[in-house]
Design a protein around this nucleic acid. Structure first.
Lengths: 239, 239
DNA sequence: TAGTGGTCTAGACCACCCC
DNA sequence: GGGTGGTCTAGACCACTAT
């Protein structure tokens, strides 16, 4: 049927096969775009388009001025999702070094939706934290965390040497949040993701919105919105 | 810093804003590529690149020969994931009409991994079904289902008028599978997805691999690998 | 300086849709 | 036939990295 626009997809296919059957290995540099042009007898743009597809699939990464390289098999993280899931603990059990860094924070008025979810008065205030998390030194997720200010008074004083949110909450407030629900969705990377996670655009991201309780108070305590690298994170659920 | 390649991203940004602030509405046709070229004073390719970004974000869909249209807000499906999750039931509770179609099936030898998971002998045989599922008539997911042949003898005779797998299993074998684990991952759409689900390439997909038990036998019964449209499916988990 | 990836232009031609 | 999106070519120029 429609077999005119085969060239570009064909090249992507051939390159994919070369990677998957191991004739170019993990970490290897692909021939330069100019070389591939000559090799396949096509234009610059066709090659670039084919390579873009491989980038989206996570098979290669490209570095301006250096070349295009077959992705190192990133250590895939298994992320068991339970009501007690804690990023740091989770990874340590898999013998992976975990760390978190606070990118920024503010105290602000809650939105209408945040009021509803956290059962706040409109004049209550909230902490809004942005956290990046690392596994073995590699950035894997961006998280926005919302906490009611009156639940964690003076939180700001503990933020200077931030590593693990839940550790902090336990140490200073004796609170161990319990996750009560999560919503998972597959989305595409945006500017923010590319900047912080060091990944290209148009790459899959697992978005997780969770609500956690403070079990002693039995009330909603935390809203968190995480964006996890799709190529690194597998989310496990047991019933 | 790097502010040369702003044009393309800028245009994508501007078009995105026009859609999000409602100055072009859901279902509306965007100006043709030629018109946009003139409007922004740039080349064909720049416009196409910008539009591609919108496509990946799920904001627009393009139809050859007709034009580029702002995506109709697809009815987002909430997909509660529990050990009793059944696609058909699930959607009916949300007053959404659900249906399934069998794309194909075969009986074959299990792979090593399938043997292990389903606790089979290498000489056992398995049913391998490919199912597409619809919500309100729109395709939302592709699923591969693996069942041991000796658990569902003569299954083939029931496949001619297929609508709901779990209904079939209950009606003819009195089996109500219980999900015991799921693995969720964000990936990117492949050829197969684009063909069956009617979505473009490089669009997010939620991949779910599940294992279910036959509760009366207490043994692994089914492996299913689903690929859900990222723009339509939100997966809910309660703890 | 020379090589790499990245962005943009100008223009040809194809496939599809609708009148 | 005249519109639309889709693919490909040829070539210029920029930004980054090595050496």
């Amino acid at each position: 049927m429609n077999k005119t626009q085969a060239i570009c997809a064909d090249i992507a296919q051939k390159l994919t096969e070369q990677i998957e059957n191991g004739s170019v290995k993990s970490g290897d540099k692909l021939p330069s775009e100019r070389e591939l042009c000559a090799q396949f007898g096509v234009n610059h743009h066709v090659i670039r388009f084919a390579l873009a597809r491989l980038v989206h699939l996570g098979l290669v990464v490209s570095h301006q001025g250096k070349g295009v390289f077959v992705s190192e098999r990133v250590h895939e993280i298994s992320y068991p999702l339970t009501n007690r899931t804690r990023f740091t603990e989770n990874l340590q059990k898999q013998d992976v070094h975990a760390d978190g860094k606070l990118l920024g924070w503010q105290i602000r008025q809650p939105s209408q939706k945040e009021c509803l979810t956290l059962q706040l008065n409109p004049k209550d205030q909230i902490y809004d934290l942005h956290i990046i998390r690392y596994a073995s030194g590699q950035p894997v997720s961006l998280t926005q965390t919302i906490l009611a200010e009156h639940h964690v008074p003076g939180l700001n004083t503990f933020l200077t040497d931030f590593h693990s949110l839940y550790q902090l909450l336990e140490d200073h407030y004796n609170i161990k949040p319990l996750r009560i629900s999560s919503v998972l969705q597959a989305v595409i990377s945006c500017r923010q993701d590319t900047e912080w996670l060091g990944i290209p655009e148009n790459v899959p991201i697992l978005a997780i919105e969770s609500i956690a309780n403070d079990p002693t108070a039995g009330k909603p305590f935390e809203i968190s919105c995480s964006r996890l690298r799709g190529d690194m994170c597998r989310c496990l659920i047991n019933f």
